[in-house]
């Protein structure tokens, strides 16, 4: 039978453990196997799609940091004010709207303003204006996450004695905020990088689908529709690797941000 032949050639008739070992051995040689649906090498499919996703993700992280940290700082410094409630409420709202809801809705809005001329659909490179909308949608949830983290950290630092010392020294309020509050706040916030990566990898699946971007996310969805396991597995491995890599970066950065950690590491 044909199916049997395919199973045979794909090695699926061998015992599970042997299949697994073969897969791992191949992986170690940089061989992700072949796609079940197209027969192409998984690796070449991924290397075609990855640059799109990586550029998108990197820009989303930068956008998140630039927007969320200042907003969180402002909210925390004005705790329980109208401004704080507005920022916090918007963050809760953004956090609750999944990208597959935000994307289409924003696209509708976009169409209403600029009918049909420049649909933000498809990939024209990272410097193409079409990328703005997907980038914003992809950043919504990470922004919400970091705004809340930053705000909570600011409120905690505000009650620290050393902030009072800074004020008692006559340091101007803006510099108190930047040097004595923001600086210590960055330490716990940066440790959230891994969490942000997870949010972005998840979000990219939907954003790329909705906006027709040829990245790893859309590849995932196509692979899902075709039950293309080798591709799904390869993308999952890459995603996990990315998250672990970000956590590694955090571990390397942490002593630079917190001298106490640097010392305890030297001591080890």
């Amino acid at each position: 039978m044909r199916i049997e032949a395919i199973r045979e050639s794909a090695g699926l008739t061998k015992p599970f453990l042997e299949q697994f070992l073969n897969y791992v051995l191949n992986l170690l040689q940089g061989n992700f196997g072949n796609s079940l649906s197209s027969g192409r090498k998984v690796w070449s499919m991924i290397s075609a799609a990855a640059p799109v996703s990586f550029q998108l993700g990197l820009c989303a992280i930068i956008l998140t940091a630039l927007i969320a940290i200042p907003l969180g700082l402002i909210a925390g410094l004005n705790q329980n004010s109208k401004l704080d409630y507005t920022i916090l409420g918007s963050a809760l709202f953004l956090w609750a709207i999944p990208p597959y809801v935000a994307g289409p809705l924003l696209m509708v809005g976009f169409l209403l303003v600029l009918p049909g001329i420049n649909m933000p659909y498809g990939w024209g490179g990272i410097f193409d204006a079409k990328i703005i909308l997907p980038l914003i949608v992809l950043s919504f949830q990470p922004i919400a996450l970091i705004v809340r983290q930053t705000r909570a950290a600011v409120i905690e630092v505000l009650s620290e004695d050393f902030v009072r010392t800074a004020r008692a020294k006559g340091v101007p309020e803006t510099l108190v905020a930047l040097k004595h509050i923001l600086r210590p706040v960055l330490t716990p916030v940066v440790t959230q990088l891994g969490l942000i990566m997870i949010t972005i990898v998840n979000g990219a699946i939907f954003v790329e689908l909705v906006f027709g971007l040829p990245g790893l996310g859309r590849l995932t969805v196509q692979a899902l529709t075709n039950s293309d396991y080798p591709v799904i597995l390869a993308i999952t491995l890459i995603g996990s690797f990315l998250v672990m890599f970000s956590n590694l970066i955090v571990d390397v950065l942490y002593p630079l941000l917190d001298p106490r950690a640097a010392d305890s590491m030297k001591g080890r």
Binding site: D161, F162, T165, A168, G170, V171
Partner: peptide, 24 residues
């Protein structure tokens, strides 16, 4: 107020562990 704080009136706080900025 800013000119007075630290300029005309200096302050020394109780707990030197927490009153100094740990990352500065």
């Amino acid at each position: 107020l800013r000119e007075t704080r630290g300029g005309k009136i200096g302050f020394v706080f109780q707990d030197p562990m927490t009153s100094l900025n740990p990352v500065m």
